[in-house]
């Protein structure tokens, strides 16, 4: 069964005039790593947000695990899907680096020793442990990107949507990310990767979709 399915979906931004997404129907599977490419302004980010249930389509529908995205709250979606925004600053919401990872456990009153251990693990993996006491807004772009990704993974999502995850990363960090994504995928985590980075796509993607002017113009496995 498709993990995410879009049926004749269209979308226009509230203040926009023309539709950004035009009558797209697509099935996305959990076993794939699906890459979305296309020119600037082609509607990749919008498509990603629609498929991830963050935006709701004006016409047509999006089914996530068989449920209409209109009936799912952001909280319910967040428990299944991890979404990395194109601009990582947008999703970092605590002052301190370690707090970003611990915040949710603290809010849910989960046992802190475990959360603490998990936090150390994640920060070590993303090479941010030495920054754990620093302010998030002073991090560099690539560091923010890694922190945002790390924070998403705390939830152990079953599906990831990553909007240009490699733009800010250097060669070394990109390779680490690659390894990690491959490992996650082998554990059954599905992925949509929005990217211009052809190298990255060619090494990972099992399916490639190209978006132009709000339509899918290419879709091949």
């Amino acid at each position: 069964m498709a993990y995410i399915e879009a049926r004749k979906m269209s979308f226009t931004y509230p203040k926009g005039k023309r539709p950004v997404i035009n009558d797209i129907s697509i099935k996305v599977f959990q076993k794939d790593i699906t890459a979305i490419t296309g020119h600037n302004g082609g509607g990749k980010t919008t498509l990603g947000k629609l498929l991830g249930g963050i935006l709701k389509p004006l016409n047509g529908s999006v089914l996530i695990c068989g449920r209409n995205s209109k009936d799912l709250s952001l909280g319910q979606i967040g428990k299944k899907i991890g979404y990395l925004f194109q601009n990582p600053s947008r999703q970092i919401f605590t002052s301190k680096v370690e707090e970003e990872i611990l915040f949710i456990s603290r809010l849910k009153k989960q046992p802190m020793t475990r959360a603490q251990r998990e936090m150390e693990e994640i920060l070590r993996f993303f090479d941010l442990y030495c920054k754990k006491d620093e302010y998030t807004f002073n991090l560099s772009y690539g560091e923010k990107q890694r922190l945002a990704l790390g924070a998403i993974l705390v939830n152990r999502p079953e599906f990831l949507i990553l909007d240009e995850p490699t733009t800010g990363l250097d060669k070394l960090r990109k390779d680490t990310l690659s390894e990690y994504l491959i490992e996650l995928n082998s554990k059954g985590v599905g992925m949509i990767i929005i990217s211009h980075d052809m190298d990255f796509i060619n090494t990972h993607a099992s399916r490639r979709i190209e978006v132009e002017g709000g339509r899918i113009i290419y879709d091949e496995r």
Binding site: I54, S73, L74, G75, Q76, I77, G78, K79, Y83, F85, R90, Q91, I92, F93, T94, S95, E99, F103, I104, L107, K108, T136, F137, A151, I152, V154, N155
Partner: peptide, 30 residues
């Protein structure tokens, strides 16, 4: 910010008032 918080699996409707206040006071500074 609220979207990002919810996407971490937090249901705003299900939070108690105390938890909500905790949440808002935490995201205020950033």
């Amino acid at each position: 910010t609220l979207t990002a918080v919810q996407l971490r699996g937090i249901d705003m409707e299900k939070l108690t008032l105390k938890e909500k206040i905790h949440l808002y006071s935490n995201i205020f500074t950033p």
